[in-house]
């Protein structure tokens, strides 16, 4: 149904093929959050995965880092239409965190300090697709960007990369998290423009 907007020419003619549809390249790093920014010290921080039996796999800050931190270069895409390309990140692969987890469930609810939640399918988290990120742009993650640690799932819109990550709870169905209950898509693939339901 698109039509030409009278008088609009746009700025950039050579569109980077790494930009998904409807996205615009930014150099700065905008912040998208729904409320106040929680401030959590790494001394108090912990991360857990809870399975359907209620069993917890838990790591404190040092235990997380001891699993091995990877250097990454990634593109990130926000549902509010901005994309950052070639961004340096450091984080621990979720494959390592899930090594000893047994579950029949195919979905997780990610929970954050401050109460934010987002739903994800296990297949979007494993096989080198997702990390617990601790650094970006060569610096420890700042609180407004989700520090000390956030989920990093770069192939989905960035609201799925939950800030201030605290844990993952296995769930049998793809029940919606916070933004998903408030109008965002259950899955959020930027290449399919899965922005809203």
């Amino acid at each position: 149904m698109s039509f030409i907007t009278r008088g609009f020419s746009g700025r950039s003619r050579d569109r980077d093929p790494r930009l998904p549809p409807g996205q615009t390249l930014v150099d700065d790093w905008p912040v998208l959050s729904a409320g106040a920014t929680p401030r959590i010290d790494t001394e108090e921080w912990s991360f857990r995965i809870v399975d359907e039996t209620g069993a917890k796999h838990e790591w404190n800050w040092d235990e997380l880092l001891a699993l091995g931190v990877e250097d990454l270069t990634l593109d990130i895409h926000c549902v509010t239409h901005w994309t950052k390309l070639d961004m340096p990140w450091r984080g621990v692969s979720l494959d390592k965190l899930f090594e000893d987890v047994e579950s029949q469930h195919d979905y997780v609810m990610a929970h954050s300090y401050g109460g934010y939640t987002t739903n994800l399918a296990l297949e979007d988290l494993l096989d080198g697709k997702a990390w617990i990120a601790t650094e970006a742009d060569g610096e420890p993650l700042s609180p407004e960007h989700g520090g000390p640690a956030r989920l990093l799932v770069p192939h989905l819109y960035f609201w799925k990369s939950a800030k201030w990550i605290r844990g993952l709870v296995m769930q049998p169905r793809d029940d919606p998290g916070f933004w998903e209950q408030n109008g965002y898509h259950l899955h959020g693939d930027p290449w399919l423009e899965e922005r809203y339901w």
Binding site: S2, F3, I4, T5, F8, S9, G10, R11, S12, R13, R15, P21, G22, T24, T80, H81
Partner: peptide, 14 residues
């Protein structure tokens, strides 16, 4: 808002 240029280039903003 989504704007479309004559060559199909589009830009969207909230």
């Amino acid at each position: 808002i989504r704007l479309t240029a004559p060559d199909g280039y589009q830009a969207s903003r909230a």
